[in-house]
């Protein structure tokens, strides 16, 4: 910073900016949006494979059914859940509600925790966690 000679106040830059949960939430909203972009392509690939027949469906299903595939799919579920809840908050912000800093920070934390809870709940209810099948979905289809 020694080379900086301009006496006027400098715009707060990311390197000197204290991390706030609202800031992390905003960055996460954008990051999950980008991740969902890739996820949407996977969904479309799944639809295409279903239409194209078992020769396409089975290899894709082998990848998504592997441990890495399952991890990525859970990450995608989490990403969608976060973007959805955070997006709902954005709609309230657009209506001019929820800007009180304390409330915004609390909601930021609540959204983080509930998106994880929602993603876990979806996987538990759908019986995607091995050994757990509360709705008895295995063999139902």
């Amino acid at each position: 910073m020694s080379s900086w000679t301009d006496k006027r106040p400098m715009s707060p830059h990311v390197s000197i900016w204290k991390w706030h949960i609202t800031m992390a939430g905003s960055i996460l909203h954008r990051a999950t949006g980008c991740a969902n972009y890739v996820g949407a392509a996977v969904i479309v690939a799944w639809l295409f494979a279903t239409a194209a027949g078992p020769d396409y469906y089975e290899p894709l299903s082998a990848v998504t059914g592997s441990i890495w595939g399952q991890l990525i799919l859970f990450g995608f579920t989490l990403s969608v859940c976060y973007h959805l809840l955070s997006g709902l908050r954005h709609l309230f912000w657009d209506a001019g509600k929820g800007f009180n800093p304390k409330f915004a920070s609390t909601m930021g934390a609540i959204i983080l925790v509930s998106s994880l809870a929602l993603a876990v709940a979806i996987w538990l209810l759908a019986g995607l966690v091995p050994g757990v099948d509360p709705l008895h979905m295995t063999g139902a289809a």
Binding site: I43, W46, T50, P54, Y57, E58, S61, T64, I122, L125, A126, G127, L128, M137, T138, A140, A141
Partner: peptide
């Protein structure tokens, strides 16, 4: 939710 139900039934 609906899609997860569908993928469980295989192809």
């Amino acid at each position: 939710i609906s899609l997860i139900g569908a993928v469980r039934g295989g192809y």
